[in-house]
Write a protein that binds this DNA or RNA. Sequence first.
RNA 1: GUGGCUGUAGCUCAGUUGGUUAGAGCAUCGGAUUGUGAUUCCGAAAGUCGGGGGUUCGAGUCCCCUCAGCCACCCCA
Length: 445
Amino acid sequence: MALIPPRTLKGFRDYLPEAMIPREQLIATAQRVYRSYGFSPIDTPALEYLEILTGKGSDETDRQLYKFQDHGGRDVGLRFDLTVPLARFAAQHIQKLGTPFKRYHIATVWRGENTQRGRYREFMQCDFDTIGTKSVTADIETGLVIHDLLRAIGFSKFTIRINNRMVLNGLLDKLGLADKSTELLRSLDKLAKIGRDKVAAEMIAASGATAAQADEVLKLSELAGSNADILQQLGPLVAGSETGEEGVGRLGEVLAGIAAAGIDDARLLLDVSIARGLDYYTGVIFETFLDDLPTIGSVCSGGRYDNLAGLFTKQELPGIGASLGLDRLLAAMEELDMLAKVRTTAPVFMPYFDRERLGDYLALAAQIRGADIGVEVFPEPKKLGQQLKYADSRGFSVAVIAGGNEFAARTVQLKNLHSGDSEEVSLAEGSAVLVARIRSILSIV
RNA sequence: GUGGCUGUAGCUCAGUUGGUUAGAGCAUCGGAUUGUGAUUCCGAAAGUCGGGGGUUCGAGUCCCCUCAGCCACCCCA
């Protein structure tokens, strides 16, 4: 019989333990940070009615959408982000939930786009959103969560770029380019990548702006100096536009609020050129770059939107949220060598080499687990040397070694696998002493 | 979706202008007098040369298609 070649689809991946362990750690960290601000978990179906997903229907999302007919002939699609499902979810349940509603959602999404480093067709998003409030407090809190997230994950060198769409929109209003804002923002977003001249050329070609208008828009994004300096210069540029003035005002409040919470000002960069591709953002925008690996792109982005669920309900639901790009972040951490090469999830290894004593091993392991310390008992009574080699390659921290001699004497040998030191621990009084010794070794290594 | 580069053991790669049974290092597994991770030594296993088709007496080497990875565009996490 011909074998079926084992393979995975383009952009879809298997996760081996060494990839999955840091992945789960990252998810746990995100959950912890989100919960520390009072966000609650939700989940929604992977599959939605196609009309739910295509509601906003730009050609781009349409192209990337995985869609098909289910067995009942319904047109369905796999979710390509967590924001659209949130919109539907909110429209359906907000009466019961009440506002403001703060939720986080960590789940897989699918996009049929071309793959690249850190970009896949199946990937995980870690969104958090606060809906039902326009308060600048929520804007500030979003910045704080992003900061805490990156710190908790282990980054110390990163920059959160912050902007407000209202500033740009205000200026575009003044210039009479309001209806071209999506195209112009998209061009502006490329400033760092392709340079001023090309952006200006693209604005003229794609948006029908005049050279003078393009120049005005670009001037806005070339302001230099500290955040406070930039803020000050922005004022006159948008003067006369109500939207623009409000945007500048809110930016100032967000910066002040984040500073008040004690965050180092250097971590925040007021950058009027960042725009985000998504055109549903209407207020503050965040993008987060790793200083050591800026080319991988933003690892945590988000912003404020006026009316999340406008397609699904007449109730106006303003909100703000951001999304941690888990897979991109893991790719970055891999590249920066930040991932420990741990292949075990239990810290304690127990070799099984006295064939007659399986019951004793299992009993002892159960007692250690009872103290909430993970133990792996080797499944075969192989040579001790081989078992230790296995323990070494998997990255165990300590080994509890016992054979006929030890069991007879009511002791075990406790070995620190990092230093190689070992000590004899008595079991005469039960396992409490052993557990305490294991804890003390684990707390050091 | 468009364009470019790449594809030989688990990993990193050799493989001469097409020429017999495709190699190395590392990793894996076993052994070197019965209970301690290293080094060393011995041995073993492991490849339909990504897959399919074509040219040829003969293809890992040349051509076409396809699949996958990377890069750029597009878009974005």
